[in-house]
Every structure is written in structure tokens, then in C-alpha cells.
Amino acid sequence: MSARTRVREALIHAMERDDFSHCGGDFYARGHIRNISKVLGLDPEAMVHEYDELHGGVPLPVRAASVFQADKPINIRERRSPNWTMAMGVALAILVVFGVVKMMGGEETPTADIRPAKKSAAPHSAHARPLAGGQRRAGAALAPKQGEVVLQITARRPSWLDVKDSAGRRLFSGRMTAGQASVWRAQKALKVTFGDAGAFSVRMNGVDLGVPGSGGEVLKHSYKASKS
């Protein structure tokens, strides 16, 4: 019987003497009774019912709420108001990063009035009026005089630009919009800092130099006049 039911032989002998104290509790005792009843060909439920009658009756059902009731009440977090301190900290960090970028690229202080070239204007208009700091509107004559550098810079997308002459005088510093083009001329050389080298195209003394660098690259370049 022990081999067929996997119930220890000593436990079977104890159950035959109505001693269920070694079963480990009523739950296990009922399981052993069911196994032995099946092997003996008896009704397992009837035998379990008889056991319950002889040992205090059928156990009362246990409510799930009493089993899973938490020892401590669960506090639901109240909805918090916005964390303004964190928001102010993030805003301050953004301002600091923006300030560092401006310091690295140069102060953005426009010194000349840049106006987008009108599409109807001729490429070499004889009526182009010089602007402050040696700047001319795009479309002005690009033919350089002896020892002079003439740059036409066109913004392919919005970006920042800084232009100085060979003596270090700032001719322009500011942001150009997409499609905007301007011309600068100076003796000996022009020094240009591109906030985004891939955002501009350059013509020097009428020669197309293309894009000065890759997108997102901060580039400083000096354009010098020909010695001939």
C-alpha cells in the first residue's frame, strides 16, 4: 500500500489506529485518505467526509479578503503639484549651456543690416549700395580690386556667422536666415567663423567654393587675397 500510494508505511499504520497527528495537519490527512481510498476502491469524497465528521466537521470556508488583507493600510499617493524647483533647475542648465556655446562661437552682436537678396535683383547690379563694415547686398559686383577679398556667403538654413577683416575688426556677427545671401569685401583677408559649416555656401572673388564644412561643425576659416 505504501508503494502504491507513496505514503510512508508508519503513517499508514498510524492512520489505521485513527492517529492522524503525524500527517502534518487536516489538509495533508485528507490527501492521504483520498489516495488510499482510490487504491482500495472506496469513494474518496465519502471517506474524507467521514474523516471531517469524526474530527470536528467540515472546515469553514475562508474569505479571500481575510487571507489577503494587508497588515498595514496602503496609502495612495496624493497627486503632487508640479515640481517648480526642478523645472527652474532645468531651465537654468539650458541657459548655462546656451551661454557657453555663445562664448565659444563669439558674441552675437549684429553690426550690419543684412537683408535677403530679392529674387528680381540682377546678380551684378551696378546700383548695389554698400552696407556698414564693408558688407554689400548679395548681387553686388564680386570682381575684386587688387589685394582685395570679396566673399559672397549664402545661408542654406538658419545659422550663426561671424565675419572679421584682416585687422580683426568685426564686420558682422549674427544669425542668417535660410536663403539669405550677403557680400563682404576687405583688403588682404576675411576671417569667418561658421556656427554650422554645413549651413552655408561660399563664393570667393566670383569662384564657387561650395560648402565650407560638414553639418553642425563650428569652423573658423581665413580667406586671403591672391598675391598676384
Rank of each mutant, 00 (worst) to 15 (best):
P123D: 15
M104S: 12
D26N: 04
A65Y: 06
T109R: 09
C23H: 06
G56E: 05
R63P: 05
K118C: 14
T111F: 13
V67C: 01
A91N: 08
M47N: 10
G56F: 01
D113T: 13
P59H: 05
D43T: 01
G106P: 08
I76W: 07
H127F: 15
D52T: 03
A93D: 00
G41Y: 00
V39T: 04
T85V: 10
Q69A: 08
P116T: 06
D71I: 07
S66Y: 02
I74R: 04
V58W: 00
V100H: 14
F68H: 12
A121K: 13
G24R: 06
V90Y: 06
P73G: 02
P73K: 02
M104L: 15
I74M: 05
D43F: 03
D71H: 00
A46F: 07
W84C: 13
F98Y: 13
D113N: 10
Q69C: 14
R79W: 04
I94N: 09
V67D: 02
G31W: 02
E78G: 03
V100M: 15
L95F: 12
K38H: 07
R63F: 06
K38V: 11
T85H: 12
N83Y: 13
Y28E: 06
K119M: 15
K102W: 13
A112L: 04
K119N: 10
E78L: 02
M88R: 10
A87T: 12
E53W: 04
R77M: 09
L95Y: 11
I36W: 01
P61R: 07
I33T: 04
P110E: 09
G24V: 11
M88Q: 11
E45F: 12
A91C: 07
E53H: 05
